[in-house]
């Protein structure tokens, strides 16, 4: 059974200039962030979204999480429609957003996690142990009682992952989760993500890293200009195979490969 289904989903962002714009150069217009995208992810599988900046990866995740609503088509999470039953959808979804600015700066990591766990209906008695376990799994135990305004980018990212996982959701959305992590922390995180499907969770992860895609993905979908440009099983594909699949489907120039061919590494 599919945990996540996108049926012919389109998302358009319309820009309206400010009311008194006679001094500015802002123009009205629209950006088609997603254009008739259909895809699905089976329960217990992980899908990696690849695509250049502005291709629609984050928009896809936001649509699944109910942060955004589609202009056309529909998004189903565990059978619930994000427009018709958003509260039902939110019970299933944990979302690690890419931005660092999503915590209460004058609360500690532990206090932030406890707060969000409460809002996500984690039972009162289970909360302290769940918070402790998540801090341990994400390597934040030593900084558990530090105010998060003192955190580095990597620590914010780990805390975001901890928050997404704390309610033990059946659908996990990860937006560039290792962008600010050092290589060892990233590898540790990939191991953590690999365990999730085995526990029955469905994962969608957006990234620019082919290493990450190869490490954690069961499938990859390539988005380009808001359209689904390619989709394939990862299986035993190497990083290089994913890389050439990406550049073939997007039609972009692989300048790094050209440099490598010229001996510049």
């Amino acid at each position: 059974m599919d945990s996540i289904v996108l049926e012919s989903v389109s998302k358009i962002f319309r820009h309206h200039p400010a009311l008194f714009n006679w001094m500015g150069r802002e123009r009205s217009g629209e950006t088609r962030a997603l254009d008739d995208v259909s895809l699905s992810v089976a329960r217990g599988k992980s899908l990696v979204l690849l695509g250049p900046n502005g291709s629609g990866k984050t928009t896809t995740l936001k649509l699944v999480s109910t942060m955004l609503l589609p202009d056309a088509g529909r998004v189903l999470v565990q059978g619930a429609d994000t427009q018709g039953a958003p509260n039902e959808v939110r019970k299933h979804v944990g979302f690690a957003v890419a931005t660092e600015r999503s915590f209460f700066p004058r609360l500690s990591a532990r206090e932030n996690l406890d707060f969000f766990a409460t809002l996500d209906d984690v039972p009162h008695k289970a909360r302290p142990s769940r918070v402790q376990a998540m801090l341990e799994r994400t390597g934040l135990l030593d900084a558990a009682d530090t105010l998060v305004m003192k955190f580095s980018s990597g620590m914010y990212q780990r805390l975001g992952i901890a928050r997404a996982l704390i309610k033990e959701p059946s659908v996990i959305l990860l937006d560039e989760p290792t962008r600010s992590l050092d290589p060892a922390s990233a590898a540790h995180f990939w191991n953590l993500v690999r365990e999730l499907p085995a526990q029955g969770a469905t994962v969608i992860l957006a990234t620019h890293s082919f290493n990450e895609a190869a490490a954690v993905g069961d499938f990859v979908a390539v988005l380009h200009h808001g359209r689904l440009a390619g989709y394939r099983k990862v299986g035993d594909s190497s990083v290089e195979e994913l890389r050439s699949f990406y550049f073939q489907t997007t039609g972009e120039l692989d300048e790094a490969a050209q440099l490598a061919a010229r001996g510049w590494r």
Partner: peptide, 18 residues
Amino acid sequence: QTGTLEILMTTSTPAPVL
């Protein structure tokens, strides 16, 4: 401003209750 609004709106607590 703190960027918490979007993430708060995806918790299991409905927005008006929050």
